[in-house]
Computed example of a mutant assay.
Amino acid sequence: MSPEQKLAQLGLDVPVVAAPVASYVPAVRTGSYIYTSGQLPLRDGDLMRTGKVGAEVSPEEAHECAQQCALNALAAVRAEAGELSAITRVVKVVGFVASAAGFTAQPQVINGASELLGKVFGDAGQHARSAVGVAVLPLDAPVEIEMIVEVR
């Protein structure tokens, strides 16, 4: 079953590549690796939520935002690789969480991305990861995800 079919089983699909919000490209391929730029939780061109996690945004809402960030990163990868089936390994995920003072559950928020990648790619979706709390993200987004994947 293809990654797109697995996503469809989950009631999800890969969106159109999100337009950059500054001077950069969504992803760059070098050799057998694709590096994505940071992806925000944009759905149909709009941020799903704004604000800090633990204040204006609940951890559950942020978990859903992280999943959308991962879908947007997969869209950027697919644009470079041609199809998600070209992914042989998700190597690394870096997640940034705009955090209210005292909020320390960044790993659980970024699980929204990690769990999705595991469901879609199985063992090849298991990856190294960082989950970092930050003061603010572009456009007041609560979450931002970047990925490195290996492709054939």
Rank of each mutant, 00 (worst) to 15 (best):
17 V>L: 15
92 K>H: 12
142 P>M: 01
130 S>Y: 03
5 Q>T: 11
103 F>S: 10
134 V>M: 03
134 V>H: 03
141 A>K: 02
38 G>Q: 03
33 Y>G: 00
78 R>F: 02
16 V>F: 15
76 A>P: 06
101 A>M: 07
43 R>Q: 08
106 Q>R: 11
137 L>G: 06
34 I>D: 12
103 F>L: 08
84 L>K: 10
150 E>K: 12
32 S>Y: 02
37 S>Q: 06
59 P>K: 07
81 A>R: 06
81 A>H: 10
71 L>A: 04
27 A>S: 13
69 C>G: 09
16 V>Y: 15
34 I>S: 07
21 V>R: 13
14 V>A: 13
39 Q>H: 12
140 D>G: 04
47 L>R: 01
30 T>A: 13
151 V>W: 04
132 V>G: 02
79 A>D: 15
26 P>N: 14
68 Q>V: 13
49 R>Q: 02
109 V>I: 10
148 I>Q: 05
69 C>E: 06
125 G>K: 07
92 K>I: 03
82 G>T: 11
119 K>A: 08
3 P>E: 11
91 V>D: 13
68 Q>S: 05
90 V>N: 05
126 Q>M: 11
121 F>R: 10
152 R>M: 02
112 G>V: 10
73 A>G: 05
69 C>V: 04
152 R>E: 13
140 D>E: 08
84 L>G: 09
41 P>Q: 04
47 L>F: 01
135 A>Y: 01
50 T>I: 01
71 L>I: 09
99 S>C: 13
34 I>W: 02
4 E>V: 07
115 E>N: 14
101 A>L: 10
136 V>L: 03
76 A>Q: 12
103 F>P: 05
15 P>W: 14
108 Q>C: 04
80 E>L: 01
41 P>A: 05
152 R>A: 08
45 G>Q: 05
129 R>Q: 11
82 G>H: 06
1 M>A: 15
29 R>M: 11
55 A>M: 03
148 I>Y: 02
3 P>C: 11
146 E>H: 01
99 S>T: 15
128 A>R: 07
108 Q>M: 10
8 A>S: 14
70 A>Q: 05
26 P>I: 14
46 D>E: 04
29 R>P: 08
50 T>C: 00
130 S>A: 09
95 G>L: 08
74 L>R: 03
99 S>R: 14
129 R>V: 07
127 H>D: 06
16 V>C: 12
82 G>R: 07
64 E>A: 12
75 A>P: 01
24 Y>M: 08
21 V>Q: 13
135 A>H: 00
109 V>K: 14
115 E>S: 12
124 A>M: 07
60 E>Y: 01
128 A>F: 05
73 A>K: 07
120 V>W: 10
107 P>G: 11
6 K>H: 07
73 A>S: 10
